[in-house]
């Protein structure tokens, strides 16, 4: 099971062109939980005076990790879409450090998966950003939910 999850999730990231463009890597996946990291890249800078990565790139990381968590959840499914995503930026990410997002499905219904996520740089005690989101749960092929 773990192997299947792993394979599914690796393919998921590889199949997302935008995530690939941002250099994202799926580090870990378990049912309803995903860890995705994004290396530092000067192209992603939002403020040249501080060299801090733009919040938008962190949003993309959070969204990808959230989607991966939903897909790995037994009640979730392939082909989820984001309904809403709110991000709190707690502190600037340290330049030159990889950012890692940990996303977890904390509740799932027949139609919606609720996700929480946190992003860290090398300081794993103080999150860079936190997010909450709602994702769609796709209808099953057989018409059931």
């Amino acid at each position: 099971m773990a192997d299947i999850l792993e394979k599914m999730a690796q393919q998921f990231i590889a199949a997302l062109p935008h995530a690939g463009r941002l250099g994202m890597v799926l580090d870990k996946v378990s049912p309803g939980r995903a860890v995705v990291s994004m290396p530092y890249d000067p192209m992603l800078i939002g403020d040249p005076s501080t060299r801090v990565i733009h919040g938008g790139a962190v949003s993309a990381l959070m969204d990808t990790a959230g989607g991966a968590a939903v897909m790995s959840h037994p009640g979730g499914g392939i082909g989820t879409a984001t309904l809403d995503l709110r991000i709190d930026y707690m502190r600037p990410a340290t330049p030159d450090q990889t950012i890692t997002a940990v996303a977890e499905v904390y509740h799932v219904t027949r139609t919606i998966a609720f996700v929480r996520a946190e992003a860290f740089d090398h300081d794993t005690d103080r999150p860079v950003a936190a997010a909450t989101g709602a994702f769609t749960v796709p209808e099953r092929k057989d018409g059931t939910r």
């Binding site: 935008h18 790139a57 993309a60 969204d63 990808t64 879409a81 995503l85 991000i87």
Partner: peptide
């Protein structure tokens, strides 16, 4: 490069947020 779901295809939610 902005695609998030190649099956539909649809733009990546993160690209839209950004």
């Amino acid at each position: 490069d902005l695609i998030g779901n190649p099956v539909l295809p649809a733009l990546h939610g993160g690209a839209i947020a950004a």
